[in-house]
Design a protein around this nucleic acid. Structure first.
Lengths: 203, 203
DNA sequence: CGCATTTTTGATACACGTCAATCTCCGTGG
DNA sequence: CCACGGAGATTGACGTGTATCAAAAATGCG
């Protein structure tokens, strides 16, 4: 296995002011004040804090999504945001101008599409759910960096033991091949069988 | 059981141009052209049409939600919309003016909140999911008009036989009491135990 | 090198799925 | 007004996919 290096973000135009969040850390918590963000790279989970103070998975943001825009309306964040993988974010809206209606409309349409994706990850058999999540997280080059087993379990509504069994099964059947990436846990970086990454039902 | 009568919508201000959709009928289909709508009363399911032409539950709209705004951006609807209960809708945006950014922002925040609700309906034990859906559909007076068992099953990611068993169980334990409403099927209109309608874990 | 965290694996239980047979409701037409 | 028929709902018997509990192994940090 060759050792890959993470992308150098400092060369990306307009990303001077980008904020980096390491995997597992909070971007913000429900009830706190702060700006809205656009997620440039990585994945973030959003949790509601129940009346009993117990956090429950509520939604998912992946590259391109807008997060925390409700704080522009209510003053505080509704959800807590935690990085599932290393993330790069930009304050939103980007320019110093007013928020364009078109931009908001696009965000709204995208939010609905994302919601439909998440719903699909929470129905059907466990194998199909996990493969769906791998597709959602996989890049065009056929590589994935997955969240922890526990986070995958929260997203799919399964148990981490079940996730572990399924991912090990996909490894054994060759659908997933471990890939070492600097700064990423060994159990979380894989190359994905391209046939499975697009439509096929997997093993 | 007394016979209740449906609300007379003609007395609601600004609802002259409202469109009525009977339970079970389509408002629009994916790929078609049309305006965006605000759902004034009732509930609507949104389905994605998969590559195999097979429809899958994607999202839910309840009173106050905006539907089909993606058609303002892409020209066509992304999802198919079907009435779960009798619905009243208004074309959106309401006035003849431009869409206000604030209004869109509110819709975006609401869409995210709704998505979190739906996610919650698709995890945990079957009883908790069904009770959660009853809470979502129940009005402040403690009455619910539910979708068909099949629709509830699609929303919660369970089977209609399971839904039937759970709802019958709630009836037998007195949490749900059948209520006759004109034009609504006997199995779909109930009074809900107020203790269960707010926080309590149910039977 | 030791230790906390995460992941893997096994054995067992049970909640829900599946299949199939009624039963109820309600609209239709004789 | 009642017989008919179809869609939706209920119920039972049985199978199975995940949950649950428990223990060991792997991973990576200090």
């Amino acid at each position: 296995m060759s050792l890959l290096h993470p992308v150098d973000r400092s060369s990306v135009p307009g990303l001077r002011s980008a904020r980096r969040i390491p995997a597992g850390e909070h971007l913000y918590r429900a009830g706190a004040e702060g700006p809205a963000w656009r997620l440039h790279a990585g994945a973030i989970r959003l949790d509601t804090t129940g009346p009993d103070g117990h956090a429950a998975f509520a939604s998912l943001a992946i590259a391109g999504d807008i997060l925390g825009c409700e704080a522009m309306l209510f003053g505080v964040y509704t959800f807590s945001a935690t990085a599932l993988t290393e993330c790069w974010l930009l304050p939103w809206p980007e320019g110093r101008r007013e928020v364009a209606a078109d931009s908001l409309l696009a965000s709204l349409a995208q939010a609905q599409q994302r919601a439909a994706n998440i719903v699909a990850l929470r129905g059907g058999q466990a194998m199909a759910r996990v493969v769906g999540l791998i597709r959602l997280f996989g890049d065009s080059a056929g590589r994935v960096i997955l969240p922890t087993r526990q986070d995958i379990a929260d997203i799919t509504g399964l148990r981490f033991e079940t996730i572990s069994r399924i991912i090990k099964g996909l490894e054994r059947s060759g659908v997933l091949v471990p890939v070492r990436v600097e700064g990423v846990r060994a159990t979380r970086s894989y190359a994905v069988d391209p046939a499975v990454l697009n439509g096929l039902p997997a093993a």
